[in-house]
Design a protein around this nucleic acid. Structure first.
Length: 287
DNA sequence: AAGAGGCCCTGATAGC
DNA sequence: TGCTATCAGGGCCTCT
């Protein structure tokens, strides 16, 4: 479900609700997520305080006291819901027809605080929870990941060095988390549209100007998506139940056969599969 | 080493 | 209505 912007939107709203609260109880209804929930998961979390809700790339990080961490990845279909006991409100980041409504199936993990509980729902179970017991373990966990687009390391030199001699197309690089982390399948297409670059262009053939546009537009797209509250495909909401709006601004994603939105361009949006992931582009201004 | 492809899993939707 | 096929925002692993 989520790329960096959606995870950031969830992080913000989650931080408002559970920061500085102590975990009273943990329920694991189904431990068979992408990775098996560890045996000591419940005991490790119990009586620990959430000092902050942080994020790197598409990973949510519950910072706990004693410098330990609970990592949450939402995979493709993971959502987080908060139920307030007193007000009986349900905050959810998934909307259903009669919202606010908690999904009935696939509520795999529940984390109880004094006045509310966090529920992790994930039909496809590609998401996961992991415990990291110190800074060092956290660092190692993210070692294989490239910089986020906002980081100064994501520079012209970095792209030039990375792309040197690479036959692989640029679209595949944008969703390759070891190159740059946080961009997924939707925003990769959108970034290349803004940059006027053909998704199948070989990385080694990109000009300095192409690279500069990629750096600029990666930041631009992600920041704008965060500002809009994420993209509400499949009814994504933040954990206050607020819908995202960025999907209204898609220029190419899921617009196959429609007209290019760029004024003066007479092109049409095409869809191709690049290593099994759908990719959208304008057949005139991106060629 | 780099790059392509498969796989994990359920649910929504399209097409017959 | 009911079947089957295809696709879905991710990440890891294997094979060539």
């Amino acid at each position: 479900m989520p790329e960096l912007p959606e995870v950031e939107v969830v992080r913000k709203s989650l931080n408002q609700k559970i920061k500085n609260k102590e975990i009273k109880k943990v329920l694991v209804r189904n431990k068979n997520l992408r990775f098996k929930v560890p045996a000591d998961f419940k005991n490790f979390l119990k009586n620990k305080k959430v000092t902050n809700v942080s994020r790197f790339s598409k990973y949510l990080i519950l910072c706990l006291d004693k410098k330990s961490f609970c990592l949450i990845h939402l995979g493709m279909s993971g959502t987080i819901h908060l139920v307030n006991f007193k007000k009986k409100n349900i905050f959810t980041n998934t909307s259903f027809y009669n919202s606010p409504l908690l999904p009935k199936k696939h509520n795999h993990i529940e984390i109880f605080f004094k006045d509310l509980k966090l529920i992790y729902n994930d039909p496809r179970r590609f998401g996961f929870f992991q415990i990291l017991k110190n800074d060092d373990q956290l660092k190692k966990r993210f070692k294989h990941l490239g910089p986020e687009p906002f980081h100064s390391r994501f520079s012209l030199k970095y792209l030039n060095d990375f792309f040197k001699g690479k036959e692989k197309n640029i679209k595949s690089f944008l969703i390759d988390q070891s190159f740059v982390s946080g961009i997924g399948n939707i925003y990769a297409s959108e970034i290349l549209f803004l940059s006027k670059i053909y998704p199948l262009k070989k990385a080694k053939l990109l000009s300095d100007n192409d690279c500069k546009k990629i750096i600029l537009n990666s930041k631009k797209i992600l920041l704008n998506a965060i500002k809009r509250g994420g993209s509400s495909i499949k009814n994504f909401r933040d954990s206050n139940g607020i819908n995202g709006n960025f999907q209204k601004e898609f220029n190419v994603y899921q617009r196959e056969g429609e007209k290019c939105k760029k004024s003066s361009c007479t092109g049409m949006i095409k869809k191709v599969f690049i290593s099994n992931r759908s990719t959208f582009f304008c057949d005139i201004c991106q060629i």
